[in-house]
């Protein structure tokens, strides 16, 4: 019952793969991209229910991708979860401004990613 669509974006192939497998095994239809620009194109084309993206990526960074998504009415409402590896927290102000649903730091747990995705989607449905 792949009625939920997720887009996973990371320039690390193994990271994309592990998140994709976790979500696929739990009923998601998963799209993948290895850079921000490709992710934006996929988001416009497929309008996923949720996007899980890395912060530091070639072509467009995670933040630049979200800015672009928010500026486009077709993708503006898609909830985004960000994975960060640098050990820094994205400021609350920026998080609110870009409507970032959640931030998870690497090394992450695929279980935790799935759980967060489910929670965010639940909140989005109820909102």
């Amino acid at each position: 019952m792949a009625d939920r669509k997720a887009l996973v974006v990371d320039d690390e192939f193994h990271i994309v793969q592990v998140v994709a497998i976790k979500l696929k095994n739990n009923g998601f239809d998963v799209l993948t991209a290895d850079n921000g620009a490709a992710a934006y194109t996929l988001a416009v084309q497929h309008k996923p229910d949720i996007i899980v993206t890395d912060y530091q990526m070639p072509a467009l960074t995670g933040l630049e991708l979200i800015e672009k998504l928010r500026a486009d009415e077709k993708t503006a409402a898609i909830p985004v979860i960000m994975l960060t590896a640098r050990g820094f927290a994205i400021e609350d102000q920026q998080k609110q401004k870009l409507n970032i649903a959640a931030c998870l730091s690497k090394p992450f747990s695929p279980r935790e990613v799935l759980q967060t995705v489910e929670e965010v989607l639940k909140q989005t449905v109820h909102a």
Partner: peptide, 8 residues
């Protein structure tokens, strides 16, 4: 980055 993969 590799640690994240190993862990995951």
């Amino acid at each position: 980055t590799p640690l994240a993969s190993i862990n995951a």
